[in-house]
Simulated assay, not measured.
Amino acid sequence: MDVLSDAIAAMRTGRPHSSRTVRLAPWGFRFPPGKGAGFHVVLQGTAWLLPPDDAPPVRLGPGDVVLLAHGTGHGLADRPDTPLVDAVPAPDGSWPTPPDRGPVGGEETLLLCGAYQLDRDLAHPLLTDLPPFVHLPARVGAHHRLRAAVDLLGAELAEPQPGADAVIPALLDTLLLYLLRTWWLTERADLTTGWSAALADPAVAGALRALHEDPARPWTVEELGTLAGLSRAAFARRFSALVGRAPLAYLTWWRMTTAGRLLRTGDLPLRSVAGRCGYSSEFAFAKAFKRQYGVAPGRYRKGAVHAP
Results as ranks from 00 to 15, higher is better:
A10I: 05
G14C: 06
R15H: 09
S18L: 02
L24C: 08
L24R: 15
A25R: 08
P26K: 11
W27I: 02
H40A: 12
T46F: 04
A55P: 07
V65T: 13
V65H: 10
G71E: 06
G73P: 00
H74Y: 12
G75W: 00
L76R: 01
P80G: 08
A87Y: 03
S94Y: 06
P99T: 06
D100N: 15
P103I: 11
G106Q: 10
T109M: 08
T109S: 14
L110H: 09
L111N: 02
H124L: 04
L130D: 09
P131N: 10
P132L: 08
F133R: 12
V134H: 07
P137N: 08
R145K: 13
L146Q: 01
L146R: 00
A149M: 07
A149Q: 09
G154L: 01
A158Q: 12
D165E: 15
L185G: 03
R188Q: 15
A189Q: 13
T192I: 11
T193Q: 09
W195F: 14
S196I: 01
A198Q: 07
G206Y: 00
P215H: 07
T220R: 15
E223V: 11
G225Y: 03
T226P: 01
T226H: 13
L227D: 02
A234E: 14
A234I: 04
S240L: 03
W253R: 15
L262G: 08
L263Q: 06
D267K: 11
R271P: 01
A274E: 01
A274L: 08
R276M: 14
F283K: 14
A288I: 03
V295H: 10
P297S: 10
P297C: 11
R299Q: 10
K302G: 12
K302W: 07
H306M: 04
